[in-house]
Design a protein around this nucleic acid. Structure first.
Lengths: 354, 354
DNA sequence: AAAACCTACGTTAGCGCTAACGTAAAATCT
DNA sequence: AGATTTTACGTTAGCGCTAACGTAGGTTTT
């Protein structure tokens, strides 16, 4: 039977606005005005009130303030995972903008599970946030409905869609995949394989695969092998997927496309460990243009996405919206193909070999 | 001149408890009881109230609820950066526990800047969180004071200290460095170099370096070269640091210790690119035992830290404390040396060579 | 010098909810 | 059957703060 234990440390009763008012011999409203930096208090009293407030360690309660003023400084942000650099970079891009606007971000990860996101949105709405940011454009019906009904400015980031809940900024993943496919076809690749993460773990990536497929289909080819073993799009996941592909696929693909650059790098390592030369024996393709690519001696062919800029722009859109300004509602950001050292023009090479 | 633009989407007025009560023909308190899952409402009314609430899309306001009940479900968490897997893993460990306890995490990154942390703590306290988690044990005086005065349960994670603000759980970084130093000395290394990040970017890492130094000092040696160019403890940072060391240090060190495994891996790549064989020509040492190490063909010698467990334990400590239970106040977690393939026993090798 | 206008305050009435304490009616006990 | 307890509600009084509207005194206007 658990004994009612006293807390380790007694909680002190924090000073409230009334305490400050009394100590300063002024009304509560004067203190409120000073704390909010609002006009209507003489310089002398202002200084005095500030002094007393500091002395008493007074911090205005945001909870009470939000309730009374019916405004909020909270921004809810939902991302799938922290284990992908992409989302960390997007967050990084947003951070500064929100800070400057005096907004407080509440970040939650959903691990790509729609029902987690749904529950989170529910909890979030209860806090009356000034805005909400979701990753991707796939959400439960309930989530969309709740957000729409709440009237809370909502922004979907990373994917692009023509029909956002409210606003969106992102890249067109299908097109990105398609463009890369065209590029590879042009280079002469015809037997692609794909290595990614488990099917429900990244819907965007599957859009890209679809785009890739389309490009190859146009020359009568298709993705000959797939491996989706990994839970996270990591270096080690890419390595494992590559092992899977190389062990179980015959003939060996002429190019392996990876969910992202980290996986691609893991794949490159594995190929070279096996004595497969990249790009002579096999091509490697990533996605995102992550920092890692800047220092590799063999730079990965990849699609470069503007993550930090996207985060910053997203934050700016939302802030503008919160303050009632008209803003762009949908922004499609460009993806640029980086032609690295892990693919080559197979036509040319064949010529020079003969 | 900016025109006062109307918002893109008109905000709807959300239903409040009163609306539900009126629609259901009951008192406000009955609705409140149902929404909170508290006893005192007959099954029939309970069902009816729930139906009406759903129909009206009613979500109880956490802001009003917190104010009235003087309780909170918010946990503030401050970490230095999302760009290090360690903190993502710690967060991951905490997430589940907090969710189960019905607590909402608010995560902020400080980028290792004390004044950011200070401001964040200030903002956080204003929300009356149920608890606060800080990374590390280095905080501004004001931060410590504010937290202590607030009476909010506070937990410091990742570093261990005997004198926490309130509670702490972490590893002893100095000892971890020292133990690794002893290990390297035992293996016969005498000319270590260190590659990390900029000095103010990771105080823990510097503690480890101090421990390392001590171990080498005991055999009359010292860290012969340092490189702290990088901003983030990334693969590419490790590579750059290694280039720096190898270009500018003579004689070449016999072992390079890195801030973490990612950097160490970057370093290994660079060494091998230069034709330096690891571990025959040079040893490589990391820190943390990150996932990457599980798939490398040459596994990095490193100190394995229990990040996920630490996160989970931390969350449990804080939850226990919030609910008034007595808990451990300070937990020192073990660090285990993993003797990988990037170091070797230099004594033995010398014997076999002669 | 009276009218009009500031400026620096204070007072009142909530924001949406819950703790604490009613109070009837129903259930249980003796 | 009357006393006692329990259950199912409702009522009252805030939580800590701010919007909106006073109201004095001083300042400017004509």
């Amino acid at each position: 039977m658990p004994v009612e234990a006293p807390p380790n440390r007694p909680a002190k009763i924090p000073a409230k606005i009334e305490d400050v008012a009394r100590a300063a011999g002024v009304s509560i409203m004067s203190v409120s005005r000073v704390m909010r930096g609002v006009e209507g208090v003489s310089p002398a009293k202002r200084t005095e009130i500030r002094r007393i407030a500091r002395k008493l360690g007074y911090t205005p309660s945001s909870v009470a303030g939000s309730l009374a003023a019916a405004n909020s400084t909270l921004i809810g942000i939902s991302i799938p995972t922290l284990f992908e650099a992409v989302f960390a970079e997007i967050l990084d891009g947003m951070r500064g903008i929100f800070n400057k606007a005096g907004l407080q971000a509440i970040v939650e990860t959903t691990d790509y599970v729609e029902s987690f996101e749904e529950k989170w949105v529910q909890r979030m709405i209860a806090w009356h946030p000034a805005g909400v940011i979701l990753s991707g454009v796939f959400h439960s019906k309930t989530t969309e409905e709740r957000l729409r009904n709440s009237g809370i400015p909502t922004l979907e980031i990373w994917d692009y869609t023509d029909t956002p809940i409210d606003m969106c900024i992102g890249v067109d993943h299908f097109s990105a995949g398609y463009e890369m496919g065209l590029h590879l076809v042009r280079l002469g690749y015809r037997h692609p394989a794909y290595v990614g993460v488990k099917l429900n773990k990244d819907p965007r990536a599957e859009d890209r695969v679809a785009g890739l497929s389309k490009a190859f289909a146009e020359v009568g080819s298709r993705i000959h092998a797939n491996s989706r073993l990994a839970d996270t799009a990591s270096f080690e996941g890419g390595m494992k997927g590559t092992i899977d592909i190389l062990n179980n696929t015959a003939p060996t693909p002429d190019v392996i496309c990876f969910l992202n650059d980290h996986m691609a790098f893991g794949g490159t390592m594995e190929c070279e460990r096996r004595g497969l030369s990249v790009p002579d024996d096999i091509g490697i393709v990533g996605f995102n243009g992550l920092n890692i690519n800047e220092v590799l001696s063999k730079r990965i062919t990849t699609s470069v996405t503007p993550r930090t800029l996207m985060g910053a722009t997203a934050a700016r859109m939302l802030v503008a919206r919160i303050y009632g300004a008209r803003t762009e509602e949908k922004i499609r950001m460009p993806v640029e193909i980086f032609d690295g050292d892990t693919t080559k023009d197979r036509m040319k090479t064949r010529d020079s070999n003969t």
